[in-house]
């Protein structure tokens, strides 16, 4: 899941300061699950904007709406009527959602959250980074623990000299990913894997080759679409 966190209020208020009618848009997917941009957060932010306007002695109108998903144009189409009534939009979706909304409406769209990382839920209210989207998954040889996302240096053949008692030198709260990998390989009886050197990683699929795109020919083929439509 993509995780996000609400931006500092003052930053959001700064963006919308010039405008009088604002639409706050939530997304019912990842940002709802990580409690950053669902209906509840939309309500709270909208209230905060109204409180701020009261303090500033300015009358601001705030509309609230939450879409099923902001990263699909069809869902974003549903905003048409509301978007027509406002001067600016604050989106609480991840960067993908914000850009989709911005691409479809000719008014300023501001981010209400900082998109953080692809993470997993550890327990209620705690999410941790697990994947950096390197485009060439190596979990198969590292016992299911990702050294790219979970090693501070993303090294391929670890650990480095900074691993102390299973913790990373950057912080005693951060596990050394390579310690985890070793422990896991021992658990699986696959210590031999550890001895094999991993060749230098090709970072092109990770974005080194420019903005990435996935095209599923079977789904995206214009032929199929045409046939369907026909």
């Amino acid at each position: 899941m993509i995780t996000a966190e609400q931006k500092p209020l003052q930053e959001i208020l700064g963006y919308i300061a010039p405008y009088e009618k604002i639409l706050v848009v939530g997304c019912n997917e990842c940002v709802t699950v990580c409690a950053a941009g669902g209906r509840k957060e939309v309500g709270l932010l909208s209230s905060a904007i109204r409180l701020n306007s009261a303090k500033a002695g300015k009358k601001i109108e705030v509309l609230e709406h939450t879409l099923e998903r902001q990263c699909d144009p069809e869902y974003v189409d549903q905003l048409a009527e509301l978007a027509g009534q406002v001067d600016a939009v604050v989106s609480l979706a991840c960067g993908c959602g914000i850009q989709t909304v911005a691409s479809q409406y000719p008014i300023p769209v501001f981010p209400g959250v900082n998109t953080k990382f692809m993470g997993a839920s550890e327990s209620q209210g705690i999410w941790a980074e697990r994947c950096m989207g390197c485009g060439d998954c190596m979990l198969g040889i590292t016992g299911g623990i990702c050294p790219i996302a979970r090693c501070s240096k993303s090294i391929m053949n670890g650990p480095c000299g900074g691993s102390v008692n299973g913790k990373c030198e950057i912080s005693p709260d951060v596990d050394c990913a390579w310690q985890l990998i070793w422990d896991r390989l021992v658990e699986l009886g696959l210590q031999d894997r550890y001895e094999e050197l991993v060749a230098a990683k090709d970072w092109r699929p990770a974005g080194g080759g420019g903005p990435r795109k996935i095209i599923r020919e079977d789904l995206a083929s214009s032929k199929i679409i045409t046939e369907d439509n026909a």
Partner: peptide, 11 residues
């Protein structure tokens, strides 16, 4: 008591 209720009362 939802945090929203607290905000609404203030609002």
């Amino acid at each position: 008591v939802d945090a929203i209720h607290l905000m609404k009362a203030l609002e």
